[in-house]
Design a protein around this nucleic acid. Sequence first.
DNA 1: GAGCGCAGCGAAAACGATTAAGTGCTAATA
DNA 2: TATTAGCACTTAATCGTTTTCGCTGCGCTC
Lengths: 336, 336
Amino acid sequence: MVTITDISKACGVSRATVSKALNGASDVSPETAKRVRDTAASLGYLPNAAARALKMGRSYNIGVLFSDATGGGISHEYFSRILESVKAESERLGYDITFISKDLGRQSMDYYEHAKYRSCDGVVIASADFQDPAIIRLAASEIPTVTLDYSFDSRTSILSDNVRGVETLVRFVYEKGHRKIAFIHGEMTAVTQKRLASFRKTCAELGLSIPPEYIRPAIYHDPRSSGLETRALLALSERPTCIFYPDDLSFLGGLSELEKHGLSVPKDMSVVGYDGIPLSQVLRPRLSTYRQGGERMGKEAARLLVEQIENPDTWIPQQITVEGELLPGSTVSEIG
Amino acid sequence: MVTITDISKACGVSRATVSKALNGASDVSPETAKRVRDTAASLGYLPNAAARALKMGRSYNIGVLFSDATGGGISHEYFSRILESVKAESERLGYDITFISKDLGRQSMDYYEHAKYRSCDGVVIASADFQDPAIIRLAASEIPTVTLDYSFDSRTSILSDNVRGVETLVRFVYEKGHRKIAFIHGEMTAVTQKRLASFRKTCAELGLSIPPEYIRPAIYHDPRSSGLETRALLALSERPTCIFYPDDLSFLGGLSELEKHGLSVPKDMSVVGYDGIPLSQVLRPRLSTYRQGGERMGKEAARLLVEQIENPDTWIPQQITVEGELLPGSTVSEIG
DNA sequence: GAGCGCAGCGAAAACGATTAAGTGCTAATA
DNA sequence: TATTAGCACTTAATCGTTTTCGCTGCGCTC
């Protein structure tokens, strides 16, 4: 491994000067700087991130936290899109990313300890159980963090506009003439609460009274669970004309249940999804859904985290909401 | 930050002893060891990964390489499943994972340099253009590597059993009575070549002669492209009775094209996919496909990489093939 | 010619951990 | 009794960088 010392010997200057030259310090002559850079290149010098991190207390490494327990694992479209854009933007800004987890090997660490151990300059909390004390500890620590889809007090967060998304969808189906709208939702997280509240509020604004049995709990990304709720809805004496699903994938569970009952979409039943994953636009009929701005969210998360890392003193926590867009699709029929 | 020095002061022993006690070295008395561990715990000591890496030349960090250029980005089911299992297994074995890329910030590095810079103990090459000189350089370097779905000479690799997978599917549809089988394949990578060769070989073994126009190039994970090829197949004077798609997602493009022609699956046309992503088993009809053992592959990759890292001298490169399984589904009809 | 400022460079001390070599000490062996 | 062996610990060097503080000469001013 070629080090700064090798360069200093080859150039006949001190290690201090080499370091300064390589980092563009002002007190080294242009000629020396060039000579140093040239020999560094010809020797194939690479800085040593560990030594740097040790000395500077900065690792140029940011942690990403995906706790799969909540079912928000990497392999869900929405999260992998976020991960990909966090990665791309971080790298653009000169930071690597490392996954942060509980329990590394036989050492048991919590998230905060893990991040400290790797001296992460900051952490993106992408998907987690926000009630978990370990998450709360991390968010309350001195380590810069950005959370996605949840706001801790006086910390920076990026939010998908769930309120607006649901409102947009409700108004969309309302305008198509639907009045009996059912809402199948996921587990009761902060996100779900917002969506449900928005659903209720928008319905109220539109003068719709939604019977309680139209609002049904299911599980995100679980077609089986939403299939069961669909069946329950179909068993009602007064069936809805339109069903909201917790996400695009859940819709598929509903779809097969509808088909079992001989109902076709959208002729006999209108449906909408949520997320706008690529798949939803490849299906026939194209799903009516709301596309969350995952890549924008990931990019903003990385950007704000780095800004916070590099300006710790002047940093003011922000909550940014990233808008999505309605994908009209064709699973909502014009009625009445 | 509490360091080993703080502990040594609190305990009245030298830093060396603290280090040894914490790492379970033999030449420290049980009592001292306990005292050190206790004060370490009470002080909230955390080792510093950077200092460790610097001194030991081992970072307990493994690099993961996903170059999105090839379309094998993180957000495809198959790859995110692999990523997730690589992550889980690595963490179980005490290693963190960091993404390796070209170009970190304004520094331009190739993969090898990046891995060196972060002193990764090894790299999992999960998805990449294996012709890329930068990849070749990495694979030829002294850094332990494991590649997925590609074998470099005398390096360890994990392969999906593409040959067997395609053979299984061909025999499956053959037994259902199909004789006119079309094969839409993805870009001509090593994997594609294997699949195509297996298709040809199995057909030959079964005495089927496949007209050249039944074999059509498309693009992986691109429903549009496979839709076009489907259209071309339907335009033939002698249509196939069964179509192979490059992957499950591509099938959806074919499906919508078939529907446009008023053909229903599997009544008028049988189809099979590849990958066996969860979605494929939620669709109605359930897709007949071959499920690749992504999580097994990721797990094996991590396991073998760590084994290689920890036994560099006695390491013998291996090629492991991970079997998948047929998901019969119901998109292949019984004919003849 | 004394005094001053400045540009360019170097010496040396960190950062936090590991580890080879060495130091006393007690107890067992020859 | 002298030697050895082993235990439990310490000393000090080391990994590759960064950074503070000084030092040296040079040119300029008064």
